[in-house]
Design a protein around this nucleic acid. Sequence first.
DNA 1: GCAAATTAATGATTTATTCAAG
DNA 2: CTTGAATAAATCATTAATTTGC
Lengths: 214, 214
Amino acid sequence: MKVHQFARGFWEQEPTLTLGGCKRFRPLAPKLPNSDNVVSATPFDLKSFIRPESGPRKLGFSDDKRESTQVETQPGGTRWNPTQEQIGILEMLYRGGMRTPNAQQIEQITAQLGKYGKIEGKNVFYWFQNHKARERQKQKRNSLGLSHCPRTPASTISSSITMETRGSEEEREDSPCKRKCRTWTFECLEEDKRYNKEEGDRTLELFPLHPEGR
Amino acid sequence: MKVHQFARGFWEQEPTLTLGGCKRFRPLAPKLPNSDNVVSATPFDLKSFIRPESGPRKLGFSDDKRESTQVETQPGGTRWNPTQEQIGILEMLYRGGMRTPNAQQIEQITAQLGKYGKIEGKNVFYWFQNHKARERQKQKRNSLGLSHCPRTPASTISSSITMETRGSEEEREDSPCKRKCRTWTFECLEEDKRYNKEEGDRTLELFPLHPEGR
DNA sequence: GCAAATTAATGATTTATTCAAG
DNA sequence: CTTGAATAAATCATTAATTTGC
């Protein structure tokens, strides 16, 4: 099987990946301590490798200096705490019919909401996911209690801005036809901790492979 | 309520947000026929049109030269088509115990696998998700047939490289304790379509629009 | 041998659940 | 108790295998 061969090259080039922390894996290759390998590799071997939640959860926003000790993959950190403005806007968008914003939309929403407080794209994403799910639950609960006239709670929604959302088709809430709208990429944990600093932080590049460039 | 106020500014500044690709909604704002908002959206309306193989599906490694015209913001989107090398490495990692790599891990894996063909972080993420889920299904199916001795298939995994992954703690397979490891961000649809790229096209910035310094 | 037609795999998204911070 | 965060299950969609008729 050729896999091993490939694997071989793989490990040799990226010793980092050879489970720095997880010794169980015996590297197929010698080890190759070569300091800088390809992709700048961000040496951080495997600390986070599967044991990310060990460290202190709290530190949060103190002020990242993690690169020194690498505090296990980012300070767990405080979770997003939306401001009234942010919630208001999100709800408006929701009422407006938005259910599963795509990457660009999320990006822009995030940019806007960032004016009212720290926020990241994932917060927006999650908010829509949760809000949608919970509205659904609520509705289901209600329907059980009423057992008829399923259209009741729609009032707020339908009143002013139901929009085309689903009025046109047969679909309800969020049809599956909206598939394939989102694209995303992973980001180095390090940086997502910044609060909203001005300019610069908008231009985040997606592949923060370089250790600390920013 | 101030919401409207915010909303107002919001829409004005970010017309793009009016649902780029999902025409279903009618934007609160005028409409903004501005072409760019469709953005990718990959109106792929017709491409898949029942005759999926019409276009040059093969390109893969041949030597694509399409980047010149960029084919309207990327072609409906070819999905990732892993090479043998990539699969081999991924499977190795999986056998090594990796189940839900975090952002950093994904990043690095992606960087490595990128040597063997175009790949993005999300592909790696999805691969693990799917592989894990499908192994589970398979196992369940098997167990139904056997209805006993649940420890059977573990052999390969436990034998040589279980790693610290969860060897140290109480967690098995993929306990929920691994929560909160991942961080990701959304990316503009535009670029994710490029094929392999080398240089710096990775540093793209995401906010083509920030209206004002915020 | 070969393409169109079908089927099997599997990549990509969405939805449902669960966990836990506040 | 509310709700942000994360994962697993279900689902959709596209690509590669394969079968089939010529």
